[in-house]
């Protein structure tokens, strides 16, 4: 039981990170119907920006942790948002209206470009960061097994929850969010009520990138090491999460993220750690076979 609780805590933490990244996939898919395969790299850049920001703050002597975390988060969101915006502007907007495959190839190209860019700029070596948020609660169990709930895990879950609430508020209650949903449902009609569709799409990338930046920062703090390649696997997992939850659906992305996180952690805990990725992706295959629209997704109805 204690072991189970521990795995549940770990799974939820990981799931929260996947969920944050998955939202970026699902939003972009919802609005322009394309998989932004460079989104994993945006996440990776987010974690690099936060690492750099942490080191800079260390040099500047900002040592009060909550303040440092807040500054790092804001900086990471800002810089990564600029990357997200430029990505759309450079690689996707010129291809709007061309076949989906063109944009997909362009996305893969951007993904490779960003990976190599970071590798060249930052070096290929793994970047460590000493644990910043330490300590936690010991929820003592029977039989000597101690369930640990670290402050870092609490932080991840709280920040994710707060961001998700803020984010769904933006989507459901603001003018921009309403425009975003309108574009999702009918882009041409949205333009006909005077919505600037290009700007709305840019905003979608900015929002998705800033959420990915927070995920990147959490990842960096949680695992303590990052390299230029982390975006690949995390990106694919988050994509799986988005598909599992139903691509295009925001609650689906969070649910999918949680499920993928839990599956991965429980598989490692009870079966073999080597096959944890296999387990996660097998779920993807099963979902695609038996429920292609995902858990919360709506089946796509072809317009006649």
């Amino acid at each position: 039981m204690e072991y189970f609780t521990q795995q549940l805590i770990n799974g939820v933490t990981l799931g929260a990170i996947y969920g944050l990244i998955a939202i970026g996939y699902t939003m972009v898919y919802g609005i322009i119907g394309m998989i932004n395969f460079a989104h994993g790299e945006i996440f990776m850049i987010g974690s690099f920006v936060s690492l750099i920001a942490f080191l800079l703050l260390g040099i500047l002597g900002v040592t009060w942790l909550p303040l440092a975390l807040l500054i790092v988060m804001i900086l990471a969101m800002m810089f990564t948002a600029v990357y997200g915006w430029s990505l759309e502007r450079i690689a996707y907007r010129p291809l709007r209206g061309s076949p989906r495959l063109a944009a997909l190839i362009s996305a893969i190209g951007m993904s490779i470009f960003l990976q190599n860019f970071v590798q060249l700029e930052q070096g290929a070596k793994v970047k460590p960061l000493p644990p910043v948020v330490t300590g936690g609660f010991d929820l003592l169990g029977e039989g000597g097994f101690v369930v640990k709930l670290s402050y870092m895990q609490i932080l991840i879950v709280i920040v994710t929850t707060v961001l998700l609430i803020a984010f769904s508020f933006v989507i459901s209650h603001t003018t921009m969010g309403r425009a975003q949903r309108a574009c999702q449902q009918d882009m041409k009609m949205a333009a006909l009520v005077g919505i600037n569709v290009d700007r709305t799409i840019s905003m979608t990338f900015v929002l998705g990138a800033s959420l990915a930046a927070v995920a990147g920062m959490m990842f960096m703090l949680y695992y303590g090491v990052i390299d230029f390649f982390i975006g690949f696997l995390a990106g694919i997992k988050a994509f799986t999460a988005a598909v599992l939850g139903g691509i295009g659906s925001l609650p689906g992305a969070v649910l999918g993220g949680m499920l993928i996180g839990l599956i991965e952690v429980f598989w490692s805990a009870y079966f073999t750690i080597e096959y944890k990725d296999v387990a996660a992706f097998s779920i993807l295959v099963l979902v695609l076979i038996f429920r292609p629209s995902g858990l919360l997704g709506k089946p796509e109805i072809e317009k006649v």
Binding site: T175, R178, V193, G194, I195
Partner: peptide, 9 residues
Amino acid sequence: IIAQHNKLM
């Protein structure tokens, strides 16, 4: 409401 997007924006 969305028809009044520009005004609200």
